[in-house]
Design a protein around this nucleic acid. Structure first.
Length: 531
RNA sequence: GGCGCUAUCGUCUAGGGGUUAGGACGGAAGAUUCUCAAUCUUCAAACCCGGGUUCGAUUCCCGGUAGCGCUACCA
């Protein structure tokens, strides 16, 4: 196999915090490209910023990338032929190549002090000129320079920028040209002996034989320096693809200010990885024709193309992400969604001890709750709130709720309520919280026949008694959930149908006198002691 | 300030010298459902401005404007 034709892409994040969606999108595009070309995907950790880099962030980074479904052939965790893949352990390599450049006169020692440079820069700024390096040390005789260094004089190493314009090809933007007038000789090694980012990235990409540098467009202006470096090093210049910035709704660079921006945030919100992956792919890329929106990872690998990446910045649209997430929630096997959803209930049910909800019968029941409410939510973390009518029932609030006032004003409502209550209280299965949907249906039909109410007039009052609200899910699915939930040893007791009816009776009789109810319910409601 | 990049519905985008400028999210209306959600149908909604080139520019070129980025011994 001809290795020179093998595509090699890389994702090179700094482990300085949570993986941001913008970086995740860069990782995704690299991955899609590498996988489509049957090339190599490498992960390289840019941890030269010792103050901000932390090992735990690296673990987090790898976990987030894997959660999204990405993988890599070479990296700090899996090794590879061009390692090490962590910059902090490549320092000798950087020094060695920098010295080589000095020896070859491609770079030179610079003895300017920071104060001098600072003064020069300020001077240029007040004169409204571009602050480029004066070139003061460019002409120092190499022998003299070497002598001064060996005598202990502090010096940095600067690259000599050639005196011709620097052009390079960008797959997303076409030919880009920078006049050499605006690129000053950059420092590649600090006087402290530490290398500088724009230098390190070239050494790493070059040594790792990266053929395609796909990264954020904030690096576009750095690229001429890097191209000059490749040329000085005598290495082939890779293809570049600079991806546009992801902006927040206010057109500013997406940041924490805009809410959820890290992969971990989305995972914690109950966004499915395939939804996020699909959304990120659509941000800056569209398939030929541009009419399809839903793509699996393998479909993306098949159809992706860097040539079709848009150069303009894109605003992150949470609503569209939610739409995709809803789609994938509905498209996934219910068991999977249920499994993913269980942890979200623990906050509601047992804040301090999530293990309380791990009993198999409870997990089973929570799965049923999830199946019922999942079609109603954008994200899994909304499930407990959606399912709140199951977990908490406040009859007093239901009676007082202005949203229910209209229902209470309907002429048939009182009769429906009265008949329904009597029938539930008389029902044997309800006493042991084992009311079946069939039995419930029978009661509804009897109430319907006895009162003449139908449709909303029938269902709304009954739903208010059962859930506290006139709108909600189908009784067929809800009733078994309530009954079963009430029989479970949950940290928070779920009221059975009968318990709800009893609570409602109490609340209603307290709030006002109900002549019809009094007449209908001669049999005093037997109070069932709540354990 | 200098340099660079960018510019199609509110948003993501397709398209491209002559089109009813297409799709999706979101919005509105309707159908359906006991209700909400879902689903289906329909509707509203865009080529930044000014010059060229051309028979004809939203499309190509130039300028302006705006947004973003870079302008460090940060990454």
């Amino acid at each position: 196999m001809n290795t020179s034709s093998t595509v090699r892409a890389r994702f090179a994040p700094s482990p300085t915090g949570q993986l941001h969606v913008g970086n995740a999108r860069t990782a995704l595009f690299n991955w899609l490209f590498a996988r489509q070309k049957r090339g190599v995907m490498a992960l390289r950790v840019e941890d030269t910023d010792i103050e901000r880099s932390e090992a735990r962030y690296e673990d987090q980074l790898i976990a987030d990338l894997k959660w999204l479904g990405l993988d890599w052939d070479e990296g700090p965790d899996v090794g590879g032929p061009y390692g090490p893949y962590r910059q902090s352990v490549r320092l000798d390599i950087y020094r060695e190549h920098a010295e080589r450049l000095v020896t070859e006169r491609k770079a030179y020692l610079c003895f300017c002090t920071e104060e001098e440079l600072q003064a020069h820069r300020e001077d240029a700024e007040t004169g409204q000129r571009q602050a480029i390096y004066s070139g003061k040390c460019r002409g120092i005789d190499p022998g003299d320079a070497e002598r001064r260094r060996s005598q202990g004089e502090a010096c940095a190493i600067r690259l000599r920028i050639p005196d011709h314009p620097i052009r390079f090809h960008d797959i997303v933007r076409g030919e880009v040209e920078f006049s050499n007038e605006v690129v000053s000789d950059p420092i590649i090694m600090r006087s402290s002996g530490m290398p500088v980012y724009n230098y390190v990235v070239v050494i790493d990409d070059g040594l790792m034989k990266i053929t395609h540098v796909i990264r954020g467009d904030d690096h576009l202006s750095n690229t001429p320096k890097q191209v000059a470096l490749y040329e000085a090093l005598g290495w082939p210049v890779p293809e570049f693809a600079h991806l546009s910035t992801i902006l927040g709704s206010d057109r500013e660079r997406l940041s924490k200010r805009h809410g959820a921006t890290s992969i971990a945030n989305f995972r914690e919100m109950g966004v499915l990885p395939e939804a996020l992956l699909n959304y990120l792919a659509l941000l800056g890329w569209a398939p030929s024709g541009g009419t399809r929106e839903i793509f699996s990872a393998s479909e993306l690998i098949e159809q992706f193309s860097l040539e079709r990446v848009t150069p303009s910045a894109a605003i992150f649209d949470m609503e569209k992400l939610y739409w995709l997430n809803r789609h994938y929630i509905k498209a996934s096997p219910p068991e999977r969604i249920a499994e993913l959803a269980v942890p979200f209930y623990s906050k509601l049910l047992a804040e301090d001890s999530p293990e309380q909800v791990s009993a198999p019968e409870i997990v089973e029941w929570l799965s049923a709750v999830t199946r019922l409410f999942a079609p109603y939510v954008d994200r899994l973390d909304q499930l407990p709130e959606r399912a709140l009518p199951v977990f908490s029932y406040d009859a007093g609030a239901a009676v007082a709720d202005p949203g229910n006032a209209e229902v209470f004003s309907w002429p048939n409502t009182d009769a429906v309520i009265a008949r329904f209550i009597v029938k539930v209280l008389e029902d044997e299965s309800a006493k042991s919280a084992e009311m079946t949907p069939e039995c419930f249906k029978k009661i509804i039909n009897e109430v319907k026949a006895e009162t003449g109410a139908k449709g909303k007039e029938l269902f709304h009052p009954i739903r208010i008694i059962v859930t506290g609200s006139h709108s909600g899910p189908d009784f067929d699915k809800l009733i078994p959930i309530l009954e079963e939930g009430s029989r479970l040893a949950l940290p928070v007791h779920v009221l059975s149908l009968r318990e709800r009816v009893e609570a409602f009776c109490k609340a209603r009789s307290k709030s006002e006198s109900l002549p019809q109810l009094a007449r209908a319910g001669e049999t005093p409601a037997p109070t069932r002691s709540k354990s």
